[in-house]
Design a binder for these strands. Structure first.
Length: 570
RNA sequence: CGGGAUGUGGCGCAGUUUGGCUAGCGCGCCUGCCUUGGGAGCAGGAGGCCGGGGGUUCAAGUCCCUCCAUCCCGACCA
């Protein structure tokens, strides 16, 4: 195709409203344009990349026995009410009514729809296992759409659902998808890492997220650097063995001490000359079931995902200053578990093991010392609610762990019978006995993968596409449009490569060479063929590699073979 | 949800404090000349209900009210 006829509106300046590099580059290089916050037009180049990724996804899904289908974007509220998620999903669900006033939503995901489909069509063990997938637009009314394609409100996702007789079958399906995802992201040329993850609102048991490692990632990954170990988890999920004292100290009597102005752990540490590991931090939360208190050691942070699970609540928000004062009788900074009433108390396993601890006294400018869990206060639940950070020991091998940022591009879930039970999707076995179908779901954010690929592949001049997902493989640039020999040569090369199946563009615009070179770098074509008088005099043309900047001087008759070799090597 | 900022040709911005006459600049776009190895030059041009609505005033891009949109930050570790 000809650059003169394609819509590739590149910009010289970085758009003012783009924050992350992938967003800036996709707008500047003419890939996307915004239609509304978190909603984008995909211009020809971007759409080609989408189709490339979709094709890789398709091939790997089909290879594992997946069957492609298409499900509706508009979904009836009844199904969501039946699964219970109409009320649970919250404001992220785009809701709408038809002219009769009936409720619908734009699908953020398709568990309900597909379970409904399958319950109607599958009734025998002979029809299982079944792997169905689609590549479809999804809608989530994000609290804060941002970062271009990374967190949009409309996005393209591949979602596959597996249906099996039992857990063993689910394991097989899960492993197939895990393998497929590894292939997909490898083929896309991405540096990624599968990590253990939290199952979140969708519900379920085992789950892994596929993280593309990048500074701009919104998720934190904690991993063990020790070679054979390989433990890696989303920090929402990560665990680490508790740091427990060797033995219990002799409990001393509780005592009030004056700590004027000492609200933070750091201040209390300084005022009372105790280590933060002796301090019990009491964080108050509001939930739909009332107030809750979370107790962690002074040198730890609360993992709200773990806490949410421990409390079994849907809404968990840290309490505001007024709520804290009302509940404890003291301003923020002096909350403590002793004598705390009217709320659910969850203590971290490390807190339970502290002797003669320090905590807030629920009284302004006052702390308590020599507090002993069990003796001086009780709790409703004692479990791991700590946030695991860099330096915490690995749960497998105790090596200090490290942290990295990641972009979640895929997730594999074992749903089990969560949806099949509530929606009554069952099959009959050989003996005619009815069982709920065992399900799994597996998503890949196609559009987010594009953003992730750019976050990992760019330089100061623009995007550097991995060959497998580049919008075009090669761009041919004649230096001067007025030079007949150059134009003829460029056109001939363009034709030959086209006929050879190479995805090639010719920049036939009547622009000065600098403009064409800048645009080519910005858009990020992996290969550039320059036809100019300098080299043509020796009967050669230039083949330049975008990533390395390496230039090869080749005769025209060597060119096609060389390009084909490079492309087929990917 | 809370806080902050911004909204002026396609893009990036100035002008708003202190109201005043034909609303500017750079880039891009169109025409012509010229030029052709890293975003050239000259000349001529097109393109703007100054986010919407309401108000104050002789007069509003500029002041007031209100709505909308967009971006950023925050949502409290006691």
């Amino acid at each position: 195709m000809r650059v003169s006829q394609l819509l590739i509106p590149t910009l010289r300046e970085t758009p003012a409203d783009a924050e992350v590099i992938s967003h800036q580059l996709m707008v500047r290089a003419g890939f996307i344009r915004k239609a509304a916050a978190g909603v984008y037009n995909f211009l020809p180049l971007a759409w080609r990349v989408v189709k490339k990724i979709e094709q890789i996804v398709r091939e790997e899904m089909d290879r594992q026995g997946g069957q492609e289908i298409m499900m509706p974007i508009i979904q009836p509220a009844e199904l969501w009410q039946e699964s219970g998620r109409w009320d649970v999903y919250g404001p992220e669900l785009f809701r709408l009514k038809d002219r009769h006033g009936r409720d619908f939503c734009l699908g953020p995901t398709h568990e309900e729809i597909i379970t409904d489909l399958v319950r109607g069509e599958v009734s025998s063990y002979k029809q299982l296992p079944l792997l169905l997938y689609q590549i479809q637009n999804k809608y989530r009314d994000e609290r804060r759409p941002r970062f271009g394609l990374m967190r949009g409100r409309e996005f393209i996702m591949k979602d596959l659902y597996s249906f099996d007789r039992d857990e063993q079958g689910l394991d097989v399906s899960y492993n197939k998808m895990y393998a497929a995802y590894t292939n997909i992201f490898s083929r896309c040329g991405l540096v990624f890492r599968p990590v253990e993850a939290d199952s979140g609102a969708i519900g379920g048991n085992d789950t892994h997220e596929f993280m593309v490692l990048a500074e701009s990632g919104e998720a934190t990954v904690v991993y063990c650097p020790a070679e054979p170990c390989g433990y890696a988890a989303n920090s929402e999920r990560a665990i680490s063995p508790p740091d427990l004292p060797a033995g219990r100290e002799e409990p001393a009597p509780v005592q009030e001490v004056s700590t004027p102005g000492s609200r933070t752990v750091e201040q209390v540490t300084a005022a009372l000359k105790v280590g933060p590991d002796r301090i019990i931090k009491t964080i108050l939360y509001e939930t739909e079931k009332g107030m809750a208190a979370a107790l962690v050691r002074g040198d730890r942070e609360v993992n709200e995902i773990k806490l949410q699970k421990a409390l079994d609540v849907l809404r968990l928000e840290i309490a505001g200053p007024e709520a804290v004062t009302k509940a404890t009788g003291a301003p923020v900074g002096f909350a403590g578990p002793v004598g705390l009433k009217g709320m659910t108390v969850v203590v971290d396993t490390e807190v339970e093991a502290i002797s003669n601890a320090v905590c807030g006294a629920n009284k302004n400018d006052t702390h308590l010392i020599n507090v002993n869990p069990g003796r001086d206060f009780s709790w409703h639940k004692c479990t791991d609610i700590r946030l695991v950070r860099q330096g915490f020991p690995c749960p497998n091998c105790s090596t200090p762990m490290e942290e990295a940022r990641g972009i979640e591009v895929g997730q594999v879930f074992k749903l089990g019978t969560k949806y099949s039970k509530v929606l009554n999707a069952v099959y009959l076995d050989e003996k005619g006995i009815s069982h709920p179908i065992v399900m799994g779901c597996y998503g890949i954010g196609v559009t987010r993968t594009i953003a992730a690929a750019i976050e990992q592949n760019y330089d100061q001049n623009g995007i550097i596409w991995p060959l497998a997902i580049a919008p075009f493989h090669v761009i041919v640039i004649p230096v001067s449009n007025k030079d007949e020999l150059q134009m003829e040569t460029a056109e001939r090369i363009y034709r030959t490569l086209s006929e050879d199946g190479v995805e090639v563009l010719i920049d036939d615009r009547n622009e000065r060479p600098g403009v064409k070179f800048k645009d080519a770098d910005l858009v990020g074509y992996p290969l550039r063929i320059t036809v100019g008088s300098k080299t043509l005099a020796e009967g050669k043309v230039e083949l330049r590699h975008r990533r390395s900047g390496l230039v090869e001087l080749l005769r025209e008759d060597e060119l096609t073979g060389r390009v084909r070799d490079i492309i087929s090597a990917c």
